[in-house]
Amino acid sequence: MGYQTSNNEANPLQDPVKFKSFFNEFFPVLVVFARRYVVDDEPAHDIAQEAFITAWEKRLSIKNLDDVRFYLYTIVRNKCLNYLKHIKVKRVHEQEVSKENDIYFETVTIEQETFLMLKKAIGTLAPKTQEIINLSLQGLGNNDISEQLDISVNTVKTMKRRAFKKLSQQLKDHFYLFFI
């Protein structure tokens, strides 16, 4: 699934220091993922925590970073489905049942991976450019951005163009090895 080329990145589950930074980056994403299943905040946190603990304990069998994330999504999904069965919601919504569907899992995973990737890519831009991109992703037009940041519309346009160019270049690099 991934934007990290597989074998180049060490498995964060084998190194305590890397594990923590991987946790900081990926835990929030995993909670959002869990909330696509259990909705409530509290169980979503609990389940994501349990998943990380399980993953740490079984760390040796996973070879690369893409697999680690995919493995965590899978654990969380299973735990969430168990949880939903366990709380025995009186009215079993059609929606609840359909969450067992594999395509649902696929779409929720793609959603997280897309945004995680975008977040990482934006994180590499210069602070001012990041601001512009973030505003743009909030749905603001060039005029609004120019007003809010007190810069000319042309500057906004140029910076946006450069930023998106850089982002798509990164995207190319990330995927290059993956798809050859």
Partner: peptide
């Protein structure tokens, strides 16, 4: 999935 993910990212990057 990674192909689709890539396309969605491109969607946001316009």
């Amino acid at each position: 999935n990674s192909k689709i993910t890539k396309l969605f990212v491109k969607l946001f990057e316009q």
